[in-house]
Design a protein around this nucleic acid. Structure first.
Lengths: 347, 347
DNA sequence: GTGAAAGCGCTAACAA
DNA sequence: TTGTTAGCGCTTTCAC
């Protein structure tokens, strides 16, 4: 900056003013132009550290989660967050926490590095308490809901997921639609199940309890699904996630049923890998991880700067994001990706 | 710091000296003690930004990769890197790049934030050129090999993977051991295949070309594996990764063969999820993602500080890490995780 | 042994 | 409209 000032023949303050775009009505346009020119010519890039020492904001966001390393879908959230951060000239520092004590330590470290705000991600739509340490900083929840309802946050619209998936099966002509759920009382479980039941009701189908089964993993899960398919012979199955859909595929395989002909399946795409590599023909509901990460950063920037960021354009999809000036707890609708695991009109 | 100086009745310079541990023979021990005491009492934490403005190093490492979001195993590397960084008092800024232009941009941004060095990760052991922008910074490759052989890097010992896995099948009594590989010319493919052949040779088994098949994904892969298992009837299969192992499971299912009885399978655990949730009984070779991330950070710190970091202890496993003062291109041995997909003595 | 003072690169009062 | 000046929190000469 000093160099620019010298070469242009002005003072550093003018340079600062111009280069920060605060020059209108304060610096003569002609001078401003020349400053910008020399800055350009010298390839000047501001030193964000020095700047933040003065302004005490860093344009750094902390991304805190305890499951980055263990869940495969964290990547989408991070990528979305990263891209949004990029778009607004922010940097993201991502930390993976391991237990509450560690979490507090990591948050403290991030604070020392001067982050302006936090994203707090909890994967698979948990209801969660925000750590005390974050209460005095702008914080946005991702794929999680603040139990206290204070912090803004974004989650998938779980009920719509269940409704849409089930309705898709209804439209395909299924009459005995089973539900393979998750045996844990997650929001994603109760809400998707509720959506499933609503759809059944709207379609004039009776809810049959023996068509709904909640499972976890491994052999017990496979056995339960084998029984469901073998004994109840549903003509459509809505699966809580793709891993569970895979159990349905395996069950069908054993019973000599073909998915997409004898049986229609829709599953939520938790682990992209399964739905892409192992059962590419599965019709899935896509969880909007990328979009949630993107929205969360936009929201955080809004909180921090006290104004809505200029560009709220998604870099990846055309999926409509919830507006930033709406309510603070938003749910985002999830897209249904058609593949041929649904037997449209073949039955 | 000023406050500490005032309360202790010394100058800030002395405080600085003491708090940075450069006080031996420069500050009276008694004074030093009192300084430390007040610092403690006041809960003093240094401001890393201010410090780095002066010292021009930040204790921040940049982690650059273009596949963080898309590959499920990036998490392990990041976690290991994170933990090591933690142990040495470093912070990690992780960026996901998208194309070469973007990569350069992101690297420039990281440089402006004053990172002291870079980790450059390429997932699945690629031979790669290090971007020019990194050439003037300490840089360590992760799961990748520098084509020019200049930068230090760490990869799994691919050949040992193939050898160990195949030998495991030999020890279980298999005589017709098949290989389901990857149809891309990756290091991981050629080396694991070489290891497989060495093991066969060492076991006195003839290499039978019709027992080795390289596939990619989806139906074509499944079909190829179906043919392999159906027509060749191997009694053991070494799979390039777990997704391919799953094809073997599906093939076995159709042929009424049971893995772990009629057929032994060992696969490399690329996508933790598959081997844990879908085929938990698969005997796997574990890729040392965590360890590689950990080592890479240790190495980077060594490079930056010109000395070996004090603690080189792994936080997670007891797996021996390559020494930091050895050669710069290291390969790490991978553990074989026993599960009952191998029919020990049942045949 | 200790402290005063300069300065890292930048911003923001305030004065001119 | 522009320049001068005083710091942000810390490290590091250099005198004492």
């Amino acid at each position: 900056m000093k160099e620019i000032a010298e070469k242009t023949g002005v003072s550093v303050s003018s340079v600062s003013l111009v280069l920060n775009g605060r020059d209108s009505g304060r610096v003569k346009p002609e001078i401003a132009r020349r400053v910008r020119e020399t800055a350009e010519r010298l390839g000047y890039k501001p030193n964000p550290l020095a700047r933040s020492l003065r302004t005490s904001h860093t344009r750094i966001l902390g991304f805190v989660s305890e499951e980055i390393a263990t869940t495969p879908f964290a990547g989408g959230i991070i990528l979305g967050a990263q891209n949004a951060a990029n778009a607004f000239g922010y940097m993201l520092i991502t930390v993976n926490t391991d237990g509450e004590a560690d979490e507090a330590k990591q948050i403290a470290a991030l604070k020392r590095y001067g982050v302006d705000g936090f994203l707090y991600a909890k994967m698979s739509n948990r209801v969660t308490d925000i750590p005390r340490e974050l209460s005095d900083y702008p914080t946005v929840l991702v794929d999680a809901t603040d139990r206290a309802g204070r912090a803004p946050g974004i989650t998938p619209d779980e009920q719509a997921i269940g409704y849409d998936a089930t309705m898709r099966l209804v439209r395909a002509g299924c009459r005995r639609i089973a539900y393979v759920g998750c045996a844990k009382p997650l929001v994603a479980q109760t809400e998707r199940f509720a959506g499933y039941r609503h759809a059944l009701a709207d379609a004039g189908l009776r809810f049959d309890e023996s068509l709904a089964v909640d499972v976890m993993y491994h052999q017990p899960a496979q056995d339960a699904v084998d029984r469901l398919i073998g004994e109840q012979r549903p003509d459509g199955v809505f699966c809580w996630n793709d891993a569970r859909a895979l159990y349905v595929y395996q069950a069908a395989l054993k019973l000599d049923l073909t998915v997409g002909r004898d049986l229609s399946v829709v599953g939520v795409d938790n682990h992209r890998l399964i739905a892409e590599t192992v059962v590419p023909e599965l019709t899935t509901v896509e969880l909007p991880h990328y979009e949630m990460g993107y929205w969360a950063v936009c929201k955080a920037v809004t909180l921090i700067e006290g104004r809505k960021p200029a560009a709220n354009r998604m870099a990846r999809t055309s999926a409509p994001l919830p507006p930033l000036d709406g309510p603070d707890q938003v749910k985002v609708h999830c897209a249904l990706i058609e593949k041929d695991s649904v037997a449209d009109g073949k039955r």
